[in-house]
Design a protein around this nucleic acid. Structure first.
Length: 234
DNA sequence: CCGACTCCAGAAGTTACCTCA
DNA sequence: TATGAGGTAACTTCTGGAGTC
């Protein structure tokens, strides 16, 4: 029997009023109606929420050891224990792992918390875990995965930006190449003008005819003369 | 001061499970 | 109903920084 944990409404510890806390423990994938457990803060119903009773999970104090422990595959033990559904031997020795789906409320709360700070100090981790009734390890994993997702998303955005930048540069390069070609064409169309010394080309101010350098009375042609004028010779 | 060692948190990569089209 | 893809919780391994000797 697999269990999905969700926190139903009212969600008192999220909103800090003194309403009851509801846990919806629904068996999956069968269509059994969800098991709804209402918890009043002052009178905990589930034994696991009361620290005076035995717990199966690694508790807060042991969590630091569980962080890098390869034997930390004890997910869901707490909730399963709470409803009297102990894991099988197979699950207990860690050969299989159950997957707990966080409720929308839990995710939203973690999300809000992530907006405030993307990493957690031990105090924040414990506080969040307590508020959401998750194990600190779960909060830690959620933040690790969340950072990874953020980074992945940012990488995708960066990639898209660089792609567009590259396209723009390619376009700019194409435009400049074209411009260079046009300038080269311009150069080949004006062999006399480009090759002759500036002082050798003169123009008569009255008739606008280009003269040779032995015409001492003609004025000098401007160096930036538009195409076609220099070769005019009628 | 420097190097070796340990511990720990976080990143990166992977696995396994769940949901949904 | 079966199935493949995508999302994600949980895990493993690696790495770098801080503290200690």
């Amino acid at each position: 029997m697999e269990l999905a944990l969700s926190l139903g409404k009212p969600f008192s510890f999220l909103h800090n009023n003194n309403d009851s806390v509801s846990f919806c423990i629904s068996p999956t994938p069968s269509s059994d109606p969800p098991l709804q457990l209402d918890l009043l803060p002052s009178t905990p119903v589930l034994p696991c929420l009361n620290h005076t009773t035995p717990r199966v999970v690694v508790d807060d104090a042991d969590d630091s050891a569980a962080v890098s422990s390869p034997n930390s595959a004890v997910s869901c033990f707490q909730m399963e224990f709470c409803i009297g559904n102990r894991p099988s031997d197979d699950e207990e020795n860690g050969s299989t792992r159950k997957k707990l789906r966080l409720s929308k409320e839990q995710s939203a709360f973690l999300e809000d918390s992530f907006k405030e700070h993307t990493t957690l100090n031990p105090k924040q981790k414990l506080g969040l875990a307590k508020q959401l009734n998750l194990r600190p390890r779960q909060v830690e994993v959620w933040f690790q995965n969340r950072r990874a997702r953020t980074k992945l998303k940012q990488t995708e955005v960066d990639c898209e930006y660089l792609k567009r930048w590259c396209e723009n540069l390619t376009e700019e390069n194409r435009r400049l190449q074209k411009e260079v070609q046009e300038l080269r064409a311009l150069k080949t169309c004006q062999p006399l003008y480009m090759q002759a010394p500036a002082t050798t080309l003169t123009m008569c101010p009255s008739c606008e005819r280009v003269a040779t350098n032995n015409n001492k009375n003609a004025s000098q042609i401007p160096s930036a003369l538009p195409l076609g004028i220099a070769s005019r010779d009628d």
